[in-house]
Design a protein around this nucleic acid. Sequence first.
DNA 1: TTCATAAAATTAACATTGTTCAGTAACGGA
DNA 2: TCCGTTACTGAACAATGTTAATTTTATGAA
Lengths: 204, 204
Amino acid sequence: MGIQERKEREKAHMRQMILETALAIFQAEGFDKVSVRAIADRIEYSPATLYLYFKNKDDIFYALHEEGFRRFIEYQRRADVLDDPAQRLKKMGQDYLNFAVENPEYYDLMFIMAAPMREVSQEWSCGKEAFENLVKGVQDCLESGQILSGNVHTVSLGIWAFVHGLASLLLRGRLQIIPEEQREKAIEAALEYLDALLTHRPGR
Amino acid sequence: MGIQERKEREKAHMRQMILETALAIFQAEGFDKVSVRAIADRIEYSPATLYLYFKNKDDIFYALHEEGFRRFIEYQRRADVLDDPAQRLKKMGQDYLNFAVENPEYYDLMFIMAAPMREVSQEWSCGKEAFENLVKGVQDCLESGQILSGNVHTVSLGIWAFVHGLASLLLRGRLQIIPEEQREKAIEAALEYLDALLTHRPGR
DNA sequence: TTCATAAAATTAACATTGTTCAGTAACGGA
DNA sequence: TCCGTTACTGAACAATGTTAATTTTATGAA
């Protein structure tokens, strides 16, 4: 009686099909062009069919945002190759920005857009998990004793805000006040100040 | 022949009427509810009339975003009462966040939403002006010699990214990983690390 | 195979949306 | 009063998200 399982496979496959198509349109033509009908057209189903697999359009974006976090976690793991906690943390910051630049649509969904969050009922577990990974990195720095004073969560929040600030200003076109050719350099230079958040002694 | 001037007054008045209404809906019911028809209904004109005063809907948001910057500049000026450059800069950061919290819709338009930027043809003069005010604040700190090394524009970008990161994470619901009652405190605590960006010596 | 039931997919509709264009009403100067 | 310009509107268009009723398809039993 493997028929039940086959159906579940098919259901999962259909969901993935929808998500892949939605993402493809998002990447190729932008958020505004991601319509239920456009997705339905591409997968050669009726628009109404999508509602058998997702509650509504926001739910599709929520699922995409989850997929984004799965990829993001891999970026976070890249720092694990480094032994020195401080260097590891710095690489986490760099890779955060790398993720944003290399996956701008996912980043938008995960950290900027309103749509996916409307589907977050209780806890934003995706975000929480990713943040805890950062906290862990900061914790390691604290325990290794090389640097840093202050509350671990506060420092983590500061680091997140800093790199997210750079990423979101860039992705949402607010860094056009910097000439195109200098922009990347400027961001890299600013990122150097990540150290500052770690070496700083608050409340002086 | 004051008739021409009266017409211009009326035209300006109509524009303002539209903008005020758009903002009112935005503040009361959110971005999604700001429709051309909803605005037209409230001011008791036909939807088509709006297109005699604005090129399109994005153009309305662009005008709103400009108004936001006018109010923002006033927040920036609040720091002028302080004489010490470092304290002045810190207050600028605090007031930046105050603006975001007290005018979340304006902030969204100015620094997060995509819509207004689609109407920016060449130069984003609003943003440039506001940023230059920040640069000036950083410059003063450098010249007073109390603190800081490194490139003025780089530090300014870092400061902006930092405070914008906090503001945008908050406004877009990404800080719900922090319990409601601790959230404000956490942001305040993180903001203390603004100092870090100033006292830091890069490239060590 | 045949039939009833359950599941999957579609059709067609609804209420919105932004935007345009042909027409109408109001106004200003002659 | 007439005429031209300006201001405005009505109606339409194409596109959107979403739902209810209906049809098609697959399934397991007789």
